[in-house]
Amino acid sequence: MYELSRGPLVWIAFAIFFFGSAYRMISMARMARKDKVVWPYMRWGPGLRSILHWIVPFASRNMRLRPAFTILSFLFHLCLLLTPILTVAHVMLWKESWGVSWWTLPDTLSKVMAVIVIVGALTFLLRRIANPTVRFVTSASDMVLVVLVMAPFATGLMAFYQVFDYQTIVIIHMWTGAIWLAMIPFTRIAHMLFFPVTRAYMGAEFGFVRGTKDW
C-alpha cells in the first residue's frame, strides 16, 4: 500500500493536476475567443498592476477594511502553497526518486506553517457557519473542500509526531494530498489557476479601457 501511494498514486495525481490545469486554461482561452470582448481588451500591463494590488497585503481597500481576515487569508494561502514544496520530508522523496533537491524549511517552521493552514481552514469553516452573509452562499461542497484542503496538513503533522500508526497516517497523508492535488483543476480550488486571469482581465477593463483602478 505504501509503495502504491509513494509511487503511481503520486504521479497520477501530478499528471491529473498538470494536464487538468493545462486543459482548463486552454479551453478557457478558446472560450474567451468566443466571448468576443475578452481578448481585444486584455492588456497585461494594467492586468499585472491589478494582480499586484491584490497579492500584496493591504494594497486594496477591501483588504484594509478587514485587517484580521486579510492577514489570516494571506498567511493561509502562503503556507498552503509553500509548506508542501519546502518541507524536508517531501524534498527527500524528490531526491530519492529524481535526484533533485532544493532549499527546505526548518522543521519547526514547517510545523508552524502547517498549523497556520489548519487554523486558517478552521476559521474559514467557522466563518462559513457563523457569518450569515457567507452562510447564505455556502453549500456542503464548500465545507468539504476546506476539510479536504486541511487534511494533508493535519495528517502531515500527525505523521511528524507519529500519532497513531505511522504507516497508516502516512498513507492517508499521501492519499489526501494526492486527491487535493488532482482536484485543483476540477473544483473551486481552480480559483488558484484562474485568479491571475480574471484579475488581469478586470485590471485591463479598468486600467486600459476606462483609465481607472480596481483596488
Binding site: 482561452a29 466571448d35 475578452v38 478587514r66 457567507v134 484562474f194 485568479f195 480574471t198 482581465y201
Partner: peptide, 26 residues
C-alpha cells in the same frame, strides 16, 4: 450568448462573501 466570462466567473467564485462590502444595497 455567453462564454468564457460566465464559465470562469462561476468556477472561480469561492463564495467568500467579501464582495458584500462593495454593495450599497447590502
Amino acid at each position: 450568448e455567453s462564454a468564457a466570462r460566465l464559465k470562469v466567473y462561476l468556477d472561480t467564485c469561492v463564495r467568500c462573501g467579501v464582495c458584500a462590502e462593495g454593495c450599497h444595497t447590502y
